[in-house]
C-alpha cells in the first residue's frame, strides 16, 4: 500500500492553524515521509486537487468561494478534518451572525457580492466532518498525533473533558475563586491548560464540552459581578455558533434544546 494522500487547506481564516501544522518543525520531514502531502497551498506551489485520503481544513465558510472549495474537498476526500476554532465552531468571524445586518452591510458587504448571501458558519454546518482538532491555535502536537494515528489506523479521540482536569493536575488553583471569568469548566481541554498555567483565564477557544453545565457557568459569572453583555460576548467569542442554547439559559428559560456537537447530536437540558 502506498502512502496516504493528505491535503492541508485553508478557507476564510488567519492561516494560524496551518502554521501550527508547520510549527512541528522538528518532525515536518518525518511527516513528509509518513504521508504523501499532496496539497498544502499555503506552502506548496503544485497542489493536485484530486483523490485525497484525508484533507485537513482550516477556517470557516464566509463566502460562496469557501463553500465551493469545501464541497470540492469533501467530494475528493475519504476523510475531512476541521482544524482550529473557526472550522470547529465559527469562532470570532461567526460574530457577524449575532449582530443586525444593517449594522455592517454598508461597510463592505454591499460591494462584495460573494459574501452577501453566505452566513459565516463552521464546516459541519455544510458538510460531514469526520474529525475535529479544535483550538485557537490548535495544539501542534495534537495535529501530529492525528497524522500518526491516521497512518496507524487508530485516530485518537478528541479530548472532551473540561480544561479544569489538566489545570488541576498542573497544580493550579481555580481562577474563578479569584473572581476571574474563566471558562475552563465548560471548555474542552487537551491544551494542557496553557493559559491558566500562565495566570490567564480560559476564553474557551477549544469549544464547549458535550457535558457542560452552562446554566451553572452563567450563574457563577453573574455571581462574580459580570453583566449579561460581558457574559454573552465572552462565551461567544470562541464558542461561535456552538452555543445555540445560550440565550435561553441566560433568560432562565433553558429546557431541552437540541444541538450538534462535533457531529454528535446532543440534548442540552
Amino acid at each position: 500500500m502506498g502512502k496516504l494522500k493528505v491535503g492541508v487547506y485553508g478557507i476564510t481564516g488567519c492561516a494560524g492553524c496551518q502554521l501550527s501544522v508547520i510549527f512541528n518543525e522538528d518532525e515536518i520531514l518525518d511527516i513528509v515521509e509518513l504521508v504523501d502531502l499532496r496539497a498544502f497551498p499555503f506552502i506548496k506551489e503544485v497542489n493536485p486537487e484530486e483523490e485525497f485520503d484525508c484533507v485537513i481544513v482550516e477556517g470557516l465558510v464566509a463566502d460562496r468561494g469557501d463553500l465551493k472549495t469545501l464541497k470540492m474537498l469533501r467530494r475528493n476526500s475519504k476523510m475531512l478534518v476541521s482544524l482550529g476554532a473557526c472550522a470547529c465552531t465559527g469562532c470570532v468571524p461567526a460574530y457577524r451572525s449575532f449582530t443586525l445586518k444593517e449594522n455592517y452591510e454598508h461597510l463592505l458587504y454591499r460591494k462584495m457580492e460573494e459574501i452577501k448571501d453566505v452566513e459565516p458558519t463552521p464546516l459541519d454546518a455544510h458538510i460531514l466532518v469526520d474529525h475535529y482538532i479544535p483550538g485557537c491555535p490548535p495544539e501542534k502536537k495534537e495535529i501530529l498525533s492525528f497524522i500518526k494515528g491516521l497512518v496507524r489506523g487508530s485516530i485518537p479521540r478528541p479530548y472532551q473533558s473540561p480544561v479544569c482536569v489538566e489545570c488541576r493536575q498542573n497544580g493550579n488553583t481555580c481562577l474563578l475563586d479569584q473572581g476571574k471569568p474563566c471558562l475552563g469548566p465548560i471548555t474542552a481541554g487537551g491544551c494542557h491548560a496553557v493559559c491558566i498555567n500562565g495566570g490567564f483565564e480560559c476564553w474557551g477557544c477549544r469549544g464547549p464540552t458535550e457535558d457542560m453545565n452552562l446554566d451553572l457557568m452563567v450563574r457563577m459569572l453573574r455571581d462574580r459581578g459580570f453583566d449579561d453583555k460581558f457574559i454573552n460576548d465572552r462565551l461567544r467569542t470562541f464558542a461561535g455558533l456552538k452555543l445555540p442554547m445560550l440565550e435561553k439559559v441566560m433568560s432562565g428559560k433553558a429546557h431541552k434544546t437540541e444541538t450538534t456537537f462535533r457531529g454528535v447530536r446532543v440534548f442540552y437540558e
Binding site: P162, C164, V165, G184, P185, I186, M212, N213, L216, M217
Partner: peptide, 8 residues
C-alpha cells in the same frame, strides 16, 4: 445542580 463535572 452545583456540579460542573470539572474533576477538581
Amino acid at each position: 445542580d452545583l456540579c460542573l463535572s470539572c474533576g477538581a
